[in-house]
Amino acid sequence: MEYSKKVMDHFAHPRNVGELPDANAVGMVGNQKCGDIMKMMLKIENDVIVDVKFQTFGCGAAVATSSMATEMVKGKTVQEALTLTNKAVMEALDGLPPVKVHCSVLAEEAIRAALADYYQRQGIDPTPYVGVIPACDDAHEHDHGAREEE
């Protein structure tokens, strides 16, 4: 398994990592059993994402995809952010090993979960906008690839 230069760059120097105390949209997906948890914190003003921070527990790809996803939504409108796909995150990172594709799915879901929270805080049902965010087990379509070991 090999990561692209972009993935390693975002892993080694994650963008927008940390906490955002004045966030008004927060989403957390994954769980510790599965091995990846992503928390997205957005500050949204007039429908524009003016600031974003993430925290991730997970592998190199999980960190890199969260980092890239924050860059891709920063400065965007909520509507634009809703169109973010895992595929776009992956392409922006010059691809991911097949067993790591689920990390990009999680990054997309983390953004959507934060946006769902944004709608909810305004008393709006988020489902028509963000859809249903799957639970850990269906979210993780891990490939059961061959294990390398010694």
Partner: peptide
């Protein structure tokens, strides 16, 4: 993540985490 960051520091180590096994 731990192993990759140790590698960035010149240290070769390994892990039995799921992310390293390519499975759940």
């Amino acid at each position: 993540s731990l192993v990759l960051r140790l590698d960035m520091n010149g240290i070769c180590a390994s892990t039995g985490s799921a992310c390293s096994t390519g499975s759940l």
